[in-house]
Nucleic acid binder design. Sequence first.
DNA 1: AAATGGCACTCTTGTGCTCTGAGTGCTAAT
DNA 2: ATTAGCACTCAGAGCACAAGAGTGCCATTT
Lengths: 348, 348
Amino acid sequence: MSTDSTLSNLNERSQQLFKVLVEQYISDGQPVASKSLSNDEQINLSPATVRNVMADLEDLGLIISPHTSAGRVPTARGYRLFVDNLVTVKPLRGQAVDKLRSELGIDDSQEALITKASSMLSGMTKMAGVVTIPRREAVILRHIEFLQLTSNRILVILVVNEEEVQNRVIHTERAFTESELIQTANYLNQEFMGKDLSLIRQSVLDSMKQERDDMQHIMKMAIQMTDNVVSDQNDDDFIMAGQTNLMDYAEMANMEKLRQLFDAFNAKRDVLHVLDKSIQAEGMQVFIGEESGYSAFDGCSVITSPYKVSDEVVGVLGVIGPTRMAYDKVIPLVDVTAKLLGSLLSSE
Amino acid sequence: MSTDSTLSNLNERSQQLFKVLVEQYISDGQPVASKSLSNDEQINLSPATVRNVMADLEDLGLIISPHTSAGRVPTARGYRLFVDNLVTVKPLRGQAVDKLRSELGIDDSQEALITKASSMLSGMTKMAGVVTIPRREAVILRHIEFLQLTSNRILVILVVNEEEVQNRVIHTERAFTESELIQTANYLNQEFMGKDLSLIRQSVLDSMKQERDDMQHIMKMAIQMTDNVVSDQNDDDFIMAGQTNLMDYAEMANMEKLRQLFDAFNAKRDVLHVLDKSIQAEGMQVFIGEESGYSAFDGCSVITSPYKVSDEVVGVLGVIGPTRMAYDKVIPLVDVTAKLLGSLLSSE
DNA sequence: AAATGGCACTCTTGTGCTCTGAGTGCTAAT
DNA sequence: ATTAGCACTCAGAGCACAAGAGTGCCATTT
């Protein structure tokens, strides 16, 4: 049942014909008729012969006829075969890449960059763009500070990596004095600045076994805080743009489906799952229709690519659009955008 | 042409009839026929008489007939009159209020509270809920800190009001030493902690005129920073929930309109404008259809109420839904939610 | 044996027509 | 002032019909 075995059942001519069929369907959205294929300059066959071939393709489950007197449209399986083996991607011209780079390059903060990347993906494809917030394995402590709010509520401010500021209120069992807080902060800053947060956590845990009771309170605070920061990283996030573009596609006209899709966007969970698969695969991914396992996405395809900062995969970006999309153009666009974003983030 | 003069043209009976008509239309969404009104127990008139009255109401522009053989539907003007003068709001039972309070009360952070309020509004009305981030006039400095990133990029961390942390990278003309930064931070903290940010800005500006050149650099930085923080407050924001609920209403079936509406939500600008009007009016507001001045909202009504923290209006919340909505239930709900949110925020 | 022309068949789409029911507006009667 | 009665209008449903698009299959050609 694998794509490859399907492929081996197809001779050169059938493949070519299938490819043209998919391309034609993608470009005009109408079921493709034998006559129309026969007219295509790449195909020198009579409509009757085309029909014979199409019958085979239908038997293989690659195309289907909505009704007797209509042409054929690709099935999900057909799209799969197409994108995996047949599509000829059109690489972006260097000029276009430069344009992308310069548009993306004008922003300097990380968040602005990501937002811009997302809206560029959406703008160029007229579909929805999505970019996950980069998440580095190593979280380097740069600075920590405690600020007393009330007697046992303390605001912890944490600067990590380059310029990410995280803050959180923690509740302590006993009240700490101003100087205790400063002392702890100083200690942590001197000892651990420039170190990885997970290492710090381990260190602190170790020292807790030895230190005497009073110190433990402070340490507990620190642990609690790093815990939170780490878990905050897990509940990571993405920036989406151009969702409403999807409303313009005829295949989304069904309000019920549309709502499911937008609900999925808002809930984020399902989208994250799909993006996760892509990050694990460490390469470009194309999810077609319900393949993703989420019914909200049927009728949609998701094209993703992870992006790297200094050779480490830190996030993934992509576009979400109708299954009938111009894969040949979207695939290279996503690819290039991932590379660009990665390099811009690295050089920051 | 004011609502009131319209009202004075209507005798008791016509008002009553109009009211029942609107209520009936709101409840079943079908144009209301004379016969159906005549059957209503509150009305003891024959269909023919009802028709005469309806003809008057139509002349006044309160109702309209979609076509000859249909009943009547309220116009935007009709709705206006209805909500301003005729609707009998159904106050929430104390029990329901308690339920709201307890649901809302479990969160403690300000942001969680707002998000929850928004989704509660949306959940109870099956429409979209919106709550603006509270914005206090006074911005009290609590703590400031400078952290050197590279030779002339400095991370400014600012803690204001209770526990709001703001941070921003600023670029300086010359490099500062570690101790210069610490010194400046100490100075600012000692001098201005607990003071209002706008006062601080003025103070710093004044002292700039006197101090010598070297000090000016540091002051410039500070000014730059408070400027940013203040402008950040202006570009304020709202939390929205349940947008997709709106997809379920028949009157939103038009994809073109729906897209405009969702685009308006994303752009935020138009929504903010409408919410602003409400905050200025300092009271409950109902915007019907295009009244708001934004075509994206036609077919929609927006019901808003400002909310107060310790007697100062700091934000506004409301719901957005189809013009045909149950005003009698939604109005008190928005009202109560505003009061609840205000009191919970005050007690924080 | 592969490719093709021809043809009968199926199904969608659009059009025109009629019929029905709902609801109105007007007039005359109460 | 109210109402009953009636003629009129209009949307919507149902139906028949024609046109057109496309297929599947078979017989014929190469």
